[in-house]
Amino acid sequence: MSGQWAWGQLPYAWLGVGALVVLWVNTGLVVLAACRPIAQLLDYRRRFLGGAEGIIVEGEPLARHVIAQNGRRASDDSDRRAIIFHDSDHHGRVAGGVIETGVAQRLEIDGLPNEDIEVWIDEAGRAAAVAKLEEADFDEAYRAAAKASGYRREVCASVGVGCKIWFTDLDPAGRALLANFDPVAWCLRRMVWGMLGILAMIGVLLGVTGLLLQPPIFGPMSTLGGVLGLLYFLLVQPAGVMLRDALAPPSRSMLRGSWAQLGSEGLGATGGQAATKSSE
């Protein structure tokens, strides 16, 4: 720390306290914001616990999770042509069918309106739905992606005969849930991740604060705490957003992705899960 304090100058100690308060308040907001998806997962878990599970015996498909995407031409490089996708809408559709819920127990369900129906399809199911779409003609899609309106597509991940599903009844608000994997365990796992994430944020901040307050204040250890505090401030924000995205239910989590081909020969198309990972 350079220079001696003189009248009229801002004392470094005050500025340090102010910066520390900002760091704590900001982290507090990130943590509070992360509590919201955890509370939502708790509510999902409660609703699924009151539901049932069974095997689809009629209905092809019985339900779908539809992700509307808009693709835009992403590259004019001669060696690689790509379309990048953005999700514009997510919604569920239940067409109806029959579910075997136990020995000699069959449950017939009718088609349901789209609103407030959430269909949770696992990653493999969503990747398969993307791969199926990318069997289409890339050149045609690439041309459409160059237009102002972009290349629009609907990724439909569905569940049909033979699939095991977990589902809830329509609640008084007209909401219903359906999943093709164990949603109760999934919610619990994600809630634990969320809580661990929050604890990690608070733990690291406590460590940084402890280091910052090592005497002599503004000495070498305290300065190391300052460096880490600055890095923490910059990193806790994306960490909060990543946590939010990780805790999003499959009915709302972003698929995005890209569809690329190398050269004009159409080599090296990427699709499904790999495509999603490539751009997220």
Partner: peptide, 13 residues
């Protein structure tokens, strides 16, 4: 107060 904590990372990603 919180808005930049979300908008910033979303923008840069």
């Amino acid at each position: 107060i919180h808005f930049p904590n979300v908008a910033g990372p979303q923008t840069f990603s």
